[in-house]
């Protein structure tokens, strides 16, 4: 008898539970609606009306200055990563994550020397996204190319495909991270244009702020799709180029005086 009634009994209990919960939810709901409605103005998702990009003036980029690199490492907690004990400089530089790096060039014909920062170029047609088997490497609606490290399996095919060597694989355990920039062993990562700042309503990246603070103003970040943005205007005025334009990836990061 009891045995026969048990399933029914469970259903009833569940029903009671649900009813009470629903009543509870109804009393909370107004609060939720209020908060969400309030936050919406600043917490919209990435929109395809925007394409984030960058213009780097290599004329203004100063030799031996690493302000952008340092700022990036601070912003994203890359500096919290410890070098494995006993590892030499050469291997450490080859293995540690470098979201942004300084490169110094000399023209073979004219001897002109150029300094510039290299990072993920945030292509419109990113090869890393094409090759990723799980879809962990993806492009957001607003053009930011990044890695969903929840589904990255660490196969490194994206690193093979990237023409800019912009991606880093995490070779060791990460003991400490910042809240805004999670990272861990066995996944691939790269510059995400300070996506946590952008989503919070900022209009600058850490590297740009640092470059500006040092008075160089070599980095300009903005919306490529907004003709009124400072970036669009600058691109219209000066001639700029994409690195490896031959691949027709339509990069979001452009360079002048290169």
């Amino acid at each position: 008898m009891t045995g026969k009634n048990e399933p029914n009994d469970m259903k009833r209990r569940e029903f009671i539970g649900r009813t009470v919960l629903a009543a509870g939810a109804a009393s909370v709901a107004p609060g939720i609606l209020l908060t969400v409605a309030n936050a919406k103005s600043e917490g919209e998702g990435a929109s395809s009306d925007i394409r984030w990009g960058m213009l780097i003036d290599s004329n203004k980029c100063v030799d031996n200055c690493t302000a952008c690199v340092d700022a990036c490492e601070r912003e994203n907690g890359i500096n919290l990563l410890q070098r494995p004990e006993g590892q030499g400089d050469e291997m450490w530089n080859a293995q540690r994550p470098q979201w942004i790096r300084k490169v110094k060039l000399r023209d073979r014909q004219t001897d002109e020397v150029t300094n510039l920062p290299m990072m993920c170029q945030h292509c419109e047609f990113p090869p890393c996204v094409d090759v990723c088997p799980t879809g962990a490497s993806f492009k957001r609606a607003d053009g930011i190319v990044m890695v969903d490290r929840h589904i990255c399996i660490g196969c490194r095919y994206c690193m093979m495909a990237c023409p800019y060597k912009a991606r880093s694989f995490i070779h060791k355990n990460v003991e400490k991270q910042t809240v805004r920039s999670p990272r861990g062993k066995g996944c691939v990562e790269s510059c995400n244009l300070c996506v946590h700042r952008i989503d919070a309503g900022a209009t600058t990246t850490a590297c740009q702020d640092a470059c500006e603070k040092d008075g160089h103003k070599a980095i300009l970040f903005g919306d490529l799709k907004d003709p009124e943005s400072q970036l669009s205007k600058a691109l219209k005025e000066k001639s700029s180029r994409q690195i490896r334009a031959d691949l027709e990836l339509n990069t979001g990061v452009r360079y002048t005086s290169l």
Partner: peptide, 12 residues
């Protein structure tokens, strides 16, 4: 990455 250029220094 930079055709026609020689790379003088890079951390990477």
């Amino acid at each position: 990455l930079f055709p026609g250029k020689e790379i003088l220094s890079s951390s990477f």
